[in-house]
Design a binder for these strands. Structure first.
Lengths: 194, 194
DNA sequence: GTCTATAGACGGATAGAC
DNA sequence: GTCTATCCGTCTATAGAC
C-alpha cells in the first residue's frame, strides 16, 4: 500500500463495506425504508462519508446491480460457446442456480425491490434489461425459433430455480438435496440431462 | 338511497375509486414512491378526504390485500371439499390462474412491493401469511406427507402459473393460448389431468 | 477520507370549518 | 364527505472545516 493512501482515519475497504451493508438492508427491509443515515450508522461513519464513495443512493444500487448482471452476462457468453446438448443445458441451469443461491444476494434484493429499482433514473428501462437477460438465458435452453410452449418451459425452468432456491432455502434440511431436487425439475422442463 | 346519504359533494363510490387508483399507482410505480397527495390529485379530492375513508396509507393496502387473500382462501376451502383426483387438481390450477390473471391486479402489486408490504405493521408477519396460503395450495396438489420433491413440484407449478401469466401476459398474441400453455406445464408438474 | 451543520423538499397525519 | 391549513418528522444532498 502506498503512503499516499494512508490518510487520516482511512479504512481501505470502506466502499466494499458500504455495498455489503446496503445490500443487506435493502434486501431485508427494502430500498425506500432504508435511509443513508441507517447505513452510515451501521458502519460508524456519517452520511457525508457515503457521498464521498457514491454520488447518490441510487448509485449504490447501480453498483450492486452491475456486479449481478455481469455474472449473468458472463454465463450467457459462456453458454453461447457451447453446443446445444442436453448436458450443456444442465450445466447452464446448474450455474444459474449457483449464481442465484450462493451468490451475493443481489438477486434477492432485486426481487424484494422491483418497484423501487424499476423506477430508477440511472437504470431507466431496467425491466427491459431484466427481460433481455431472461431472453438470453431462454435462448441458451431452446432451439432457435422455438414455439411459445418451449420458450415458456425454459422460462419457467429458470423461474423455478430462482423461486425454489429462494422460497425453500430455509426449509430444506439439506441444501445439496434442495439443489438436486430443484435442478431435477428444471431439467425435466427443458430436456436437459445430467 | 336514503336522504341521509345525500350530503354535500358526496360521491357514493369514493372508497372504491380510491382503492382502484391506489392499486394502479402502487403496482406501477411502487408503494413508497406513491404519495397520498398523488392519489388524491388523480381523484380530484384532497388528502384529508382519503383519511375519512382509510385510517392510514397502510390501511389502503390492507383493504386490497384482504380481498385478494379472501379469493385464495375461498379457493382453498373449496379445494378441500374435493377428492384428490388428477381432474380436481387441474381445476384448482385453472382457478388459481384465473385469480392471478383475470384478477384485480393485486397479485402484481404485491409482487412489485414485497419489501414495503412485508414490513407493514398492520400486516406483521405477512410473509408468513403468504406462506400459509402457498402451503395450503400445495397441500391441495399433493398427497399428505408427500416428499420434498413432490411439494416442490407443486410449489413450482403454482409459481409458474403466477410467473407465466405475469411475465408473458403482454407477449402472447392469444391470451387463451398462453393460459392453455401455462396450465399444461403446471399439469405436468403436479400430475393433474384435463 | 471523514466530519459537523444545514439547506431544501416532501411525506403522513390531524384539527376544525363547512 | 370534503375542504383548508398546518404540524412534525424524515430524507437526500451539499458546503466547508479538519
Amino acid at each position: 500500500m502506498s503512503e499516499a493512501t494512508k490518510e487520516a482515519h482511512a479504512r481501505p475497504d470502506t466502499r466494499a463495506r458500504i455495498q455489503a451493508v446496503a445490500l443487506e438492508l435493502f434486501a431485508e427491509q427494502g430500498y425506500d425504508k432504508t435511509s443513508l443515515r441507517e447505513i452510515a450508522e451501521r458502519l460508524d461513519v456519517t452520511k457525508a462519508a457515503l457521498y464521498y464513495h457514491f454520488k447518490s443512493k441510487e448509485d449504490i444500487v447501480a453498483s450492486l446491480v452491475e456486479d449481478y448482471f455481469g455474472q449473468i452476462d458472463e454465463l450467457v457468453a459462456w453458454g453461447r460457446t457451447l453446443p446445444k446438448t442436453p448436458e450443456s443445458r444442465a450445466e447452464v441451469l446448474r450455474r444459474y442456480f449457483d449464481i442465484v443461491a450462493g451468490g451475493s444476494g443481489v438477486f434477492r434484493m432485486l426481487q424484494h425491490n422491483q418497484a423501487s429499482v424499476n423506477s430508477m433514473a440511472a437504470a431507466k428501462h431496467r425491466s427491459e434489461l431484466f427481460r433481455e437477460r431472461m431472453d438470453a438465458l431462454v435462448s441458451l435452453l431452446t432451439e432457435p425459433d422455438a414455439p411459445l410452449a418451449s420458450q415458456l418451459r425454459a422460462a419457467v425452468a429458470l423461474a423455478s430455480v430462482s423461486f425454489g432456491c429462494m422460497f425453500y432455502a430455509d426449509r430444506a434440511e439439506d441444501p445439496a438435496h434442495l439443489r438436486a431436487t430443484v435442478l431435477d425439475i428444471a431439467f425435466g422442463l427443458t430436456g436437459a440431462q445430467d
